[in-house]
């Protein structure tokens, strides 16, 4: 077991290094010039010569490999460089934006899981095949809704038409409601689909009639036997869609005007602010890898058969 944990942790480190390197190379190859974007503004009145000096100050004239190694060791020590756009340390900008996004993402993810479980188990409990079919087609609908459109629609309906949630002002909790909903809907879809299929598969297994022969009711079987067996594939899917939270938060935060990692990413892309972009990519990779590591380590806890395996 410890060997397995060590192996998986080693794998995670390797993935992070690869993500960092790939992002670094891609961002360097990117056409465009962050220094020009920032300093060519005529109001600043800088001559091309002065801009060249500034560029030399940033690059330091070091070779590409040396800069890469320097940045990498900086990341390892927790220093993520300085934003070209604002000149502040990237860590500071991330620290500012992270709590907002963490709130949004965790609430969105929680709600997504709730919606998925509700759809899958409502479908499994219903005796009418018509209701069942209708419930099972909901995820396909959810996944085909564009996030930006859903966000605008929700604002239109709930804020402007019904006046239930204030657009501006309102408490922190009130401000969270619509973005969380926008984020949760598309993410819940794949989880619901996988969960519903897993529930069907588990219910076809021979141990289910044996439980029924003990006198268990439909609900007893569903919640005490089927649920735990069906969790595993859904958990895998949940780990995978976690990555989509980050992509989803870019759009959601822009639509709802929230200051978070998504907004920060959008600004960094517009300003070609490579240090910030690199930091965001690595942060996303860290979260993704950690979540999937936790998912992998949870398998043996949920299914004792996996404990024996290496």
């Amino acid at each position: 077991m410890t060997r397995y944990v060590m192996f998986r942790a080693g794998q995670a480190v390797l993935v992070l290094w690869a993500a960092f390197t790939a992002a670094y190379v891609l961002l360097r190859l990117l056409p465009g010039d962050s220094i020009l974007i920032k300093f060519q503004n005529p109001e600043l009145g800088l001559s091309p010569q002065q801009i060249a000096e500034i560029r030399a100050h940033y690059d330091g004239g070091a070779s590409a490999l040396a800069t890469y190694l320097d940045t990498l060791s900086g990341f390892l020590r927790g220093s993520l460089g300085y934003s070209i756009d604002t000149g502040t340390p990237v860590t500071e900008r991330l620290a500012e934006a992270l709590p907002e996004t963490a709130k949004l993402a965790s609430a969105g993810f929680g709600l997504a899981v709730l919606i998925a479980v509700a759809i899958a188990f409502a479908a499994a409990s219903s005796r009418s095949s018509w209701i069942r079919g209708a419930l099972l087609s909901v995820p396909s609908l959810f996944v085909s809704v564009p996030v930006f459109w859903l966000g605008i629609l929700l604002i239109q309906v709930f804020s402007f038409r019904l006046g239930l949630v204030p657009v501006i002002g309102g408490s922190a909790a009130q401000q969270l409601i619509l973005p969380v909903l926008t984020l949760a809907v598309p993410i819940s879809a794949p989880i619901a689909q996988v969960l519903a299929r897993a529930v069907d598969q588990v219910r076809a297994q021979p141990f289910v009639p044996v439980v029924a022969a003990k006198g268990a009711s439909r609900q007893w079987i569903l919640w005490r036997h089927v649920a735990r067996n069906a969790t595993l594939p859904a958990l895998t899917m949940a780990g995978l869609v976690f990555g989509e939270l980050i992509a989803g938060s870019v759009v959601t935060e822009t639509v709802f005007g929230r200051n978070g990692i998504g907004r920060l990413t959008e600004q960094a892309v517009n300003a070609q602010d490579t240090p910030v972009m690199l930091a965001v990519v690595v942060l996303a990779a860290v979260v993704f890898v950690l979540v999937n590591l936790v998912v992998d380590l949870l398998y043996p806890v949920l299914d004792p058969r996996l404990k024996a395996a290496p």
Partner: peptide, 20 residues
């Protein structure tokens, strides 16, 4: 079921819930 009529199933390999 269970109280008045018991069932011994066919396939012992798959007739018990693997996670309990």
């Amino acid at each position: 079921r269970g109280a008045q009529i018991g069932l011994v199933p066919q396939d012992p390999a798959n007739s018990l819930n693997p996670v309990k």
